[in-house]
Simulated scan of single mutants.
Amino acid sequence: MTIKEKQDEIVSEFAFLEDWEQKYEYIIDLGKQLPPLSEEVKTDANLIKGCQSKVWIDSEFKDGKLFFVADSDGILPKGIVSLLVSIYSGHSTDEILKSDFDFISEIGLQEFLSPSRANGLMAMTKQIKFYAVAYQLKS
């Protein structure tokens, strides 16, 4: 499945949810499905700057694709980072760099979040793009 197809699927899933309480619960459920990171990965180098909660994203480049793992100490940020990992993990750096984050506004996520959480979301998306650039430069 392409990144765009995954994004479209998320937009469709959110369209079925009637209000923000249901959307909030959906995001929290996504976070509960995210496997916890080992303490060795929860380093300052993997910590996303600008998030209200602690959020860690790590990556691995394997067979031409970038794979992400993530965690957070907050239930909502954990769900949000889980959503991003599910969309972008397992794709090439080129695919990730050519993709956009328009689905975030399509599902209304930024409007739902407090300004500090919205800043954290943007920091997460920038980190994913940063990893893609870094691995693209290495290859």
Rank of each mutant, 00 (worst) to 15 (best):
M1Y: 08
M1H: 08
T2L: 07
K4A: 13
K4Q: 12
K6E: 03
Q7L: 02
I10W: 03
S12V: 13
E13Y: 00
D19P: 12
E25R: 14
Y26N: 12
I27R: 06
I27T: 12
L30F: 05
L30P: 05
Q33F: 01
Q33P: 00
P35A: 12
E40Y: 04
V41F: 15
K42T: 09
K42M: 13
T43Y: 05
T43C: 05
D44Q: 09
I48L: 10
K49Y: 12
G50K: 06
G50M: 10
S53R: 06
I57Q: 08
D58H: 06
G64V: 00
K65R: 13
F67E: 07
V69S: 14
V69E: 10
D71F: 00
S72E: 11
I75P: 01
L76Q: 05
G79C: 01
I87R: 02
H91I: 04
D94I: 14
D100K: 12
I107R: 01
G108A: 09
L109N: 06
L109H: 06
L109F: 11
Q110E: 15
E111Y: 10
S116L: 14
G120N: 00
L121S: 05
M124I: 02
M124Q: 10
Q127D: 02
V133W: 08
V133M: 09
S139N: 14
